[in-house]
Deep mutational scan, measured.
Amino acid sequence: DVPLPAGWEMAKTSSGQRYFLNHIDQTTTWQDPR
C-alpha cells in the first residue's frame, strides 16, 4: 500500500464511504490523493 501524503488522513462517513482529510489546508475530498 502506498501511504497517504503528509498531512492527509482517511476517514469514513457513517454510511461507510471513504473520504480524505487534508489537515494542512483544512479541506476534505472524495478523491484519493495518492
Results as ranks from 00 to 15, higher is better:
1 D>H: 12
1 D>V: 15
1 D>K: 15
1 D>S: 14
1 D>T: 15
1 D>F: 13
1 D>Q: 15
1 D>L: 15
1 D>N: 13
1 D>A: 15
2 V>M: 13
2 V>P: 15
2 V>L: 15
2 V>S: 15
2 V>R: 15
2 V>A: 14
2 V>C: 11
2 V>E: 14
2 V>T: 13
2 V>D: 15
3 P>K: 14
3 P>S: 14
3 P>L: 11
3 P>G: 14
4 L>Q: 05
4 L>S: 01
4 L>V: 08
4 L>F: 09
4 L>M: 12
4 L>T: 04
4 L>K: 02
4 L>P: 06
5 P>A: 07
5 P>L: 06
5 P>K: 05
5 P>V: 06
5 P>H: 02
5 P>S: 06
6 A>Y: 12
6 A>L: 14
6 A>N: 11
6 A>S: 11
6 A>E: 07
6 A>V: 11
6 A>H: 11
7 G>V: 03
7 G>D: 06
7 G>W: 06
7 G>S: 07
7 G>T: 02
7 G>N: 08
7 G>A: 06
7 G>C: 07
7 G>H: 08
7 G>E: 00
7 G>P: 08
7 G>F: 10
7 G>R: 08
8 W>Y: 08
8 W>K: 05
8 W>E: 05
8 W>S: 03
8 W>C: 03
9 E>R: 04
9 E>A: 13
9 E>K: 07
9 E>Y: 06
9 E>S: 13
9 E>D: 13
9 E>N: 08
10 M>F: 07
10 M>A: 12
10 M>Q: 14
10 M>K: 12
10 M>I: 09
11 A>R: 15
11 A>N: 06
11 A>G: 08
11 A>E: 04
11 A>V: 04
11 A>S: 11
12 K>V: 08
12 K>Q: 10
12 K>D: 08
12 K>T: 10
12 K>E: 11
12 K>H: 12
12 K>L: 11
12 K>M: 10
13 T>V: 08
13 T>N: 07
13 T>C: 02
13 T>K: 00
13 T>P: 03
13 T>R: 03
13 T>F: 01
13 T>H: 04
13 T>Y: 13
13 T>M: 09
14 S>M: 10
14 S>P: 09
14 S>I: 13
14 S>R: 14
14 S>C: 06
14 S>K: 15
14 S>T: 12
15 S>D: 09
15 S>N: 07
15 S>R: 13
15 S>I: 11
15 S>V: 12
15 S>G: 13
15 S>Y: 14
15 S>F: 12
16 G>S: 07
16 G>F: 05
16 G>V: 02
16 G>T: 01
16 G>W: 03
16 G>P: 00
16 G>L: 07
16 G>R: 08
16 G>D: 07
16 G>H: 07
17 Q>N: 07
17 Q>L: 08
17 Q>R: 13
17 Q>Y: 15
17 Q>D: 09
17 Q>A: 13
17 Q>E: 09
17 Q>M: 08
17 Q>T: 06
18 R>S: 11
18 R>W: 14
18 R>L: 12
18 R>D: 10
18 R>A: 11
18 R>P: 14
19 Y>N: 03
19 Y>F: 05
19 Y>A: 04
19 Y>S: 02
20 F>C: 02
20 F>D: 09
20 F>L: 02
20 F>H: 06
20 F>I: 03
20 F>W: 00
20 F>G: 05
21 L>T: 06
21 L>K: 15
21 L>M: 09
21 L>F: 04
21 L>W: 03
21 L>R: 09
21 L>Q: 06
21 L>H: 04
22 N>S: 08
22 N>P: 01
22 N>G: 01
22 N>D: 07
23 H>Q: 01
23 H>A: 00
23 H>V: 01
23 H>L: 01
23 H>F: 00
23 H>I: 05
23 H>S: 00
24 I>R: 12
24 I>H: 13
24 I>S: 10
24 I>D: 02
24 I>M: 11
24 I>G: 11
24 I>F: 09
24 I>C: 10
24 I>N: 14
25 D>K: 15
25 D>T: 12
25 D>N: 15
25 D>I: 13
25 D>Y: 12
25 D>R: 15
25 D>C: 15
26 Q>S: 04
26 Q>A: 04
26 Q>H: 09
26 Q>E: 06
26 Q>G: 04
26 Q>D: 01
26 Q>P: 03
26 Q>T: 01
26 Q>V: 01
26 Q>M: 06
27 T>S: 11
27 T>I: 09
27 T>M: 10
27 T>L: 11
27 T>D: 05
27 T>H: 07
27 T>V: 10
27 T>N: 09
27 T>F: 13
28 T>A: 00
28 T>R: 03
28 T>P: 02
28 T>D: 01
28 T>V: 01
28 T>N: 05
28 T>K: 01
28 T>F: 00
29 T>G: 08
29 T>V: 03
29 T>Q: 14
29 T>K: 05
29 T>E: 08
30 W>L: 01
30 W>F: 04
30 W>E: 00
30 W>R: 00
30 W>C: 01
30 W>T: 01
30 W>Y: 02
30 W>G: 00
31 Q>W: 12
31 Q>R: 14
31 Q>E: 07
31 Q>M: 10
31 Q>V: 07
31 Q>Y: 12
32 D>S: 08
32 D>V: 09
32 D>C: 04
32 D>R: 10
32 D>G: 06
32 D>Y: 09
33 P>A: 02
33 P>M: 04
33 P>K: 02
33 P>L: 02
33 P>W: 03
33 P>V: 02
33 P>Q: 03
33 P>G: 05
33 P>E: 00
33 P>S: 02
34 R>S: 05
34 R>V: 00
34 R>I: 03
34 R>Y: 03
34 R>C: 04
34 R>T: 07
34 R>W: 01
34 R>D: 05
34 R>L: 03
